[in-house]
Design a protein around this nucleic acid. Structure first.
Lengths: 213, 213
DNA sequence: CTGCATCCACTTTGATACTG
DNA sequence: CAGTATCAAAGTGGATGCAG
């Protein structure tokens, strides 16, 4: 199981040796939302074959990108988490994800949206919304994501917020608002976004997440 | 030859569908220095199998990243060049290359440095050197690269400059200067860099190209 | 049940040879 | 020069097995 290199002494080649294998960067993406167990990764990356997931995790661990840590809840076991080197991939993933998001068309049949892919979509489309700050709880189907925007930037966490000022319920077509294809009003009229609580939350959302404009 | 997707409606997944195959991003990297013919790519990406290069180029063309253009020098034929979508990958490649460069150790036996990988290394380590501006002709073995730094940023071109104020002749160990492991004087003493012409060129180089500091 | 390992059909890659 | 053809080796996808 030797490294399949590219024969060049080059940072990009070296990065691709460890990250260029299939599913590798998606595993890293999913671990950005915190430690995950094997089974959670298997679920959020479906349809990944378990054999590939197992070998990839071993490769990433050997490369110092992923670490195994013991966890006790909901029961004893191991989870996988990013090392500092793994965390350092964030700007790269955002750059690549943004490039892809600007060019992706509509969902293909059978494609799904996961909490992690939604979080990545928000990270890639985030641009500091002037002086606006606030919190939003975002619902997409059964996915719930807590969004907080403050002076430090964007903070994402899976799961609900405590006492959120605004709750947004959206469909995957929310992308049409983000890319500027629809206005806020049009999006609401078409049922793409439903606002509960303080309506300024939608203004914040629309200001913070934009693409290609 | 259908697309091997990841089953997720996600910008990162979509980007990886087209760019995640082996050699793909290295082809894009090489095309950043301008149009190249099949044979030039084969040479600069050695040891890439020609069959893989051919299919990759077709895939990248179908994905709208690469374009075939007719060329007449040195003889009639076809060359490959980046489309606007391909050019838009620069921040991504720089981010990934920088991550890799910060973590790559020493050259492995048999690894080479090509003009394109050297150019990528300079792009990934470039940081605006304050108000300094100037031009440098960089030699590494038989590679010659023209470097110009002005108010617009960094400009790289393969081949010599006309009347360069400074010529630097370096070895791959120049990386030790870039990462701050050696000072300018130590680098010169160890024969890692040889300065010809205005010595301020080395100051400019050391200020403009740094990593991990 | 979770966390993988094993097996097998299939696809991709690598190396070399070959053609217009 | 610019690829295609061929074939072995390695990687992937999908199903199943099995230990803790």
């Amino acid at each position: 199981m030797a490294i399949r290199g590219y024969g060049q002494y080059c940072g990009l080649s070296r990065a691709l040796e460890v990250l260029g294998e299939r599913w590798g960067l998606l595993i890293v993406r999913d671990l950005f939302s915190g430690p995950h167990r094997f089974g959670e990764l298997e679920h959020s990356l479906a349809p990944i074959p378990t054999s590939v997931l197992a070998t990839r995790l071993k490769d990433l661990e050997k490369a110092g990108i992923v670490e195994r840590i013991p966890v006790t809840i909901p029961r004893r076991g191991t989870a996988y988490t990013l090392t500092e080197d793994g965390m350092a991939l964030e700007p790269t993933l955002v750059a690549l994800g943004r490039w892809g998001a600007e060019r992706m068309g509509d969902p293909r049949p059978g494609e799904s949206v996961t909490p992690e892919s939604l979080a990545m979509a928000l990270r890639t489309t985030y641009t500091k919304p002037g002086a606006m700050e606030g919190a939003i709880e975002l619902h997409l189907a059964d996915i719930v994501l807590g969004i907080r925007i403050d002076g430090d930037g964007l903070h994402l966490a899976p799961g609900p917020l405590t006492d959120p000022p605004t709750v947004l319920r959206v469909t995957p077509d929310i992308k049409r608002l983000i890319v500027g294809e629809l206005t806020q009003d049009e999006s609401r009229a078409q049922g793409i976004v439903d606002v509960e609580g303080d309506p300024v939350g939608l203004d914040l959302f629309a200001a913070a997440f934009t693409l290609g404009a």
